[in-house]
Amino acid sequence: MLSQKTINIIKSTVPALEEHGTHITTVFYEELFKAHPELLNIFNHANQAQGKQQTALANAVYAAAVHIDKLEKILPTVVQIAHKHVSLGVKPEHYPIVGEYLLKAIKMVLGDNATPEILHAWGEAYGVIADAFIGVEATMYEENEKKEGGWTNFKDFVVEKVVPESNVITSFYLKPADAAHLPSFKPGQYISVRVSIPGEKYMMIRQYSLSKTPSLDMFRISVKKENDNNPDGKVSVYLHNQVKEGDTLEVSAPAGDFTLSGKSDKAITFIAGGVGITPMMSMMETLAAEEPTREIVFLQAARTPAYAAFTEQIQSLQEKMPNLTYKTYYEGNRIDETVLKDMVHPDSDVYVCGPAGFMEFVISTLYCAGFSKEQIHFEFFGPAADLEKAE
């Protein structure tokens, strides 16, 4: 527990964090990687290069300061980030290193305004928050290892099949190299894939949604090939251009909290943009097997029909799901306010996934229409704290 004095000091730094937060986190990562370049085997280099990770961390630190007296308010964000950490292999020994360089960055940016009293208070607060992460993540690691077929960290998988799903999305079917059964997972969760790309100094890790209903012997991920010039596209380009059937990939255990929830008799609306359809395919296949009469509206947006993945599979599900309404939207016929008003039942649970701009529009429009935060579930493909932008 933090003393009231420490809480008051942390609260007093909120204006400085609001003004200088991204500068602080930028300096933090620069100093961290100078001293510990081995951590570049864990962090997403593209998010670093584009400033996404710096902004996400700044948002998280700011939120922690605002809610330092009621840290339970940021618990959902802690859990979501913890899922990311577990899938990347973050360990307790990493936290003291991060704390050291975060305090160093605060001092470097704020100068004399970062008094010893402020640095001591932030050291205390960081310790409490770090302990929360370590505890949540320890439970997740333990649960992963205890599951039948479960494991921690990374495990070798063999690429069983490679199947194009659209002009830009390809599915990779992955089987454990040791032929062990796979653990159960919740539809909507993701795995991390770790690769060593020829010519790259450090390993790279990317997270991909599991796009097929759980099975005992195989995972499926469906990956969008990014533009060759996109710094975030190195792994997807490598998978599309270099990885073939029979190759081996390192894979983490399933993680993530973007999963089906709520009452089983409640209507569901899926709203997918582009490759955001991938976690929803796992959800849809599971509902088709377990709750085929559930009332479902599925809205899929893509640039053109050639870019839309899984359209035939979803259409085939309509044969066994009499209450499924499925509509596709392309350029010139986009999902707009009228579509959302006409197609999304006000009492339904809504699941949204896709590009950040698409999601921000959909989520903000639904909030303005009276939907509650409890009704709307979403997954950003990027640093976990990016979700703050949509609320």
Rank of each mutant, 00 (worst) to 15 (best):
L102R: 11
L102M: 15
K104P: 11
K107M: 06
L110F: 02
L110T: 00
N113W: 02
A114R: 10
A114W: 09
H120W: 00
H120T: 11
A121H: 02
W122S: 06
W122T: 05
E124L: 04
A125T: 14
A125P: 11
G127V: 04
A130Q: 08
A130V: 07
A130Y: 07
G135Q: 14
V136Y: 15
V136M: 10
T139Q: 09
T139C: 00
T139Y: 01
M140E: 15
Y141D: 13
N144S: 05
E145Q: 10
E145W: 02
K146V: 11
K146S: 15
E148K: 12
G150N: 09
G150Q: 11
W151H: 08
W151G: 04
T152N: 12
T152F: 04
K155A: 04
D156S: 15
F157P: 12
V159N: 13
V159K: 08
V159S: 11
K161V: 01
V162F: 06
E165K: 08
E165T: 01
E165G: 01
S166T: 05
N167M: 07
N167A: 13
V168P: 00
F172S: 10
F172E: 12
Y173I: 09
L174V: 09
L174R: 13
A177Q: 15
A179F: 08
A179P: 00
L182D: 03
L182I: 08
L182H: 06
L182C: 06
P183E: 07
P183D: 04
S184K: 12
F185P: 07
G188R: 09
Q189Y: 08
Q189M: 04
Y190Q: 03
I191M: 01
V193L: 14
V195W: 01
I197W: 05
P198C: 12
P198F: 13
E200V: 11
M203I: 01
I205A: 02
R206V: 03
R206N: 05
R206D: 01
R206A: 05
Q207D: 09
S209K: 01
K212N: 13
T213S: 14
T213G: 02
